[in-house]
Nucleic acid binder design. Sequence first.
DNA 1: AATCCTGTGTGACATATATCACGCCGGATG
DNA 2: CATCCGGCGTGATATATGTCACACAGGATT
Lengths: 211, 211
Amino acid sequence: MMDINKLKQLFPDLEEGLYNEMLERGTIKEVKAGETLLKVGQTIRSTMLILSGLVKLYREDDEGKEFFIYQLDAGQACSLSMVCAAKHKTSEVLAKALTDATVLSIPLEFMDQWMSKYKSWYQFVITSYRNRFEELLKTIDAIAFTGMDERLAYYLEKQVEKLGNNLKITHQEIANDLNSSREVISRLLKKMEAKGWLTIHRNSIGWIKKD
Amino acid sequence: MMDINKLKQLFPDLEEGLYNEMLERGTIKEVKAGETLLKVGQTIRSTMLILSGLVKLYREDDEGKEFFIYQLDAGQACSLSMVCAAKHKTSEVLAKALTDATVLSIPLEFMDQWMSKYKSWYQFVITSYRNRFEELLKTIDAIAFTGMDERLAYYLEKQVEKLGNNLKITHQEIANDLNSSREVISRLLKKMEAKGWLTIHRNSIGWIKKD
DNA sequence: AATCCTGTGTGACATATATCACGCCGGATG
DNA sequence: CATCCGGCGTGATATATGTCACACAGGATT
């Protein structure tokens, strides 16, 4: 159950009244691992705050290929859904639950209200935006400046940070996230294993590299 | 000379008092084409609003290679410099004037003040952020999903939009912006010329393609 | 045990892009 | 005019990555 204290832990530094209003106005949704929270093109009617679990965000191309851009932890929010100056904006990204997750869904109409009513809210929104922005820049660095090998290493490191050093993931899934192909990923993983960075198992990867 | 009416034209929908304060607090700076406005790692002490000209934003890698991410027109602002919850943040991007430009430089201390004082200001900041964010996503699409040919076309189209259909630019400059090499760009341009999309001249490119 | 199915390994090949080497051209400068 | 230099064209080649074909292994199902 979600009470105000948990909310405070997850989203510190907000105003008292805001916590109450969040609980009052929002609805809690449970999603299972693998489920889609938000599709590209879907009209955004509410904003989502992550209470537990991990949510992965993807960019999609015309043919439906999915490119992983970043993921959201508990205590974070989908920045894009928090600001809709023009109502009926549609989503630019695809959001999927990586693990089972709980999200607090708040109808958009409160966004504008809270922006002016709670100073702490717009600060939250703005720092949220800024942080996501910086992640995007890092993502761009990875694609623009480095090869698949470094991108893969960066990807795995991020996953390990969040999920611990025994990743339950297939080579194919990694390939999809990086918009590459299974064979390429397999070969690169092989090289990394040879360097002693990790161990390859069926359906999982054991991470060893310390730095 | 910058008066309040020009300011209103460039940045519509702000509050009366804000325009006055902008002129009062800000300093106007003139920069020549090619000059650097902001270096990576430089501490941000003020925010910049573009009054005239075009400013290009780059991401830099360790070896100093510059990757073009987007550009700012008159009436836009460097989003990253507008929010500095933590003071003494350093810049994540490199900003260079593409043409001669005029910018309004406003010390950071006013940012927080204005955020709470002027509703229109934080709306401006937020929509600014959102727009830049969407541009970043498009940039990611271009690198992640498409080849050099499409990226080049996209790049040229954007330039033409802002600068008209006679671009004064060298192949080398394009290559730098796209983190590619001159030869590749030259060859691709050749193909596009063959398709009748443009004409190649020394130091310039004439754009023909309508859509 | 025999069969399937999914994940993985691997070689051969295609393609895009980067890099190198060199030559050419045209405008600027002496 | 002669020279130089920056911008451009072009072939040869290297490398990274994507693609195809197929083999294999291990767990699950029958």
